Amino acid sequence: MGLVNYSFYSRVLLEQVNIAVLLPTYNLAHPEKSLDEVYRKGQKFRTLYVLHGGSDDCTTYIRNTDIERYADEGQFAVVFPEVKLSFYCDMAYGEKFFTYLSKELPLVVQSVFPLSEKREDHFVVGNSMGSHGAFKWALRCPEFFNAAGGMSGVSGVEELGFFCPMGSTNNPVFNAFGSVEEYRESENDMKFLAKKLVKSGRPIPRLFSCCGTEDQLTYEGSKDFAEYAKQIGLPLIWEEGPGKHDWDFWNPWLKRIIDWMGIGVAE
């Protein structure tokens, strides 16, 4: 795989931003392929957007998981955005990271890199805060994605209890969403978005959520959302297994989700 660390000026955020991109290259596992076959002009790769968790950055998955090997095996591209501690929001008190993520970023990467523009070739996955971002993006922009997966945090922020320690304006949850009243039934409220999508009749991406049973931070909230999805008729696969809120859980489940998505099948 080729690794590109790419910086560009974001018109939405009005600042330089960083992303990482993995792209298929010549693979020693298939030495029989010629350079013309590997670097075929005009080819467009299926793309997995990988969203980092809170306080992480665009390099975190590369440093903590086997994502490069998974992508190499499947010959798909991976895009790693970086959004600080924003919860992938157009923040109540901060920058418009959701607009950047959903509007500007795809335009940039599809024009600069050989990435497919087809809905069936777009996938997204995230962990913790990134799972909130992945599902929010998929629920708000369902025509863009084939499938979305979230690990340890697919839930409403309120159900996860993140509003409980409010009281200080120097609080990332407050900065992202404002007050709990402002959050409810907003474009950041996961349950509101899910119900709205089900009623809309729009195409619904395939959805997968998982969490470790020893994850004291997000297990109950994630399970609650899975039950809510079933109640309203949102097609969501929910799985759980032993594990905590850490990379020992996320790395193998990342592979599980990639296999479930079906993205890891080379053309």
Rank of each mutant, 00 (worst) to 15 (best):
P114K: 15
A92D: 06
K118F: 11
V78M: 07
Y93D: 15
K118N: 06
K103D: 08
A71C: 08
V109D: 03
Y100G: 01
M91I: 12
V78T: 07
P81F: 05
Q110R: 15
I67R: 06
V108A: 02
A71D: 00
L105T: 02
H122N: 09
E120K: 13
Y88D: 01
V79G: 01
S111C: 06
V112N: 08
E73D: 09
E95N: 12
E120S: 07
H122C: 07
A77T: 04
L85D: 15
A71Y: 02
F97D: 00
S102C: 14
E82F: 08
E95S: 12
E68Y: 06
D66P: 00
V109S: 09
E82A: 10
R69L: 10
L85M: 15
Q75D: 12
E117N: 12
Y70S: 02
L115I: 11
G74Q: 01
Q75V: 06
Q110H: 07
Q110V: 10
E68H: 07
A92S: 09
L105P: 00
V124L: 07
I67H: 04
A92C: 08
G94W: 04
F98W: 10
Y88G: 01
V109M: 14
E120F: 05
P81C: 10
D72P: 00
S102A: 15
E68D: 03
C89L: 03
S102H: 12
F87H: 07
P106S: 08
C89I: 08
D121G: 08
V78I: 15
E104G: 04
Q110K: 14
P114I: 02
E95V: 03
V124H: 01
A71E: 00
Y70N: 00
F80P: 00
S116P: 01
E95F: 14
E73Q: 08
L115E: 02
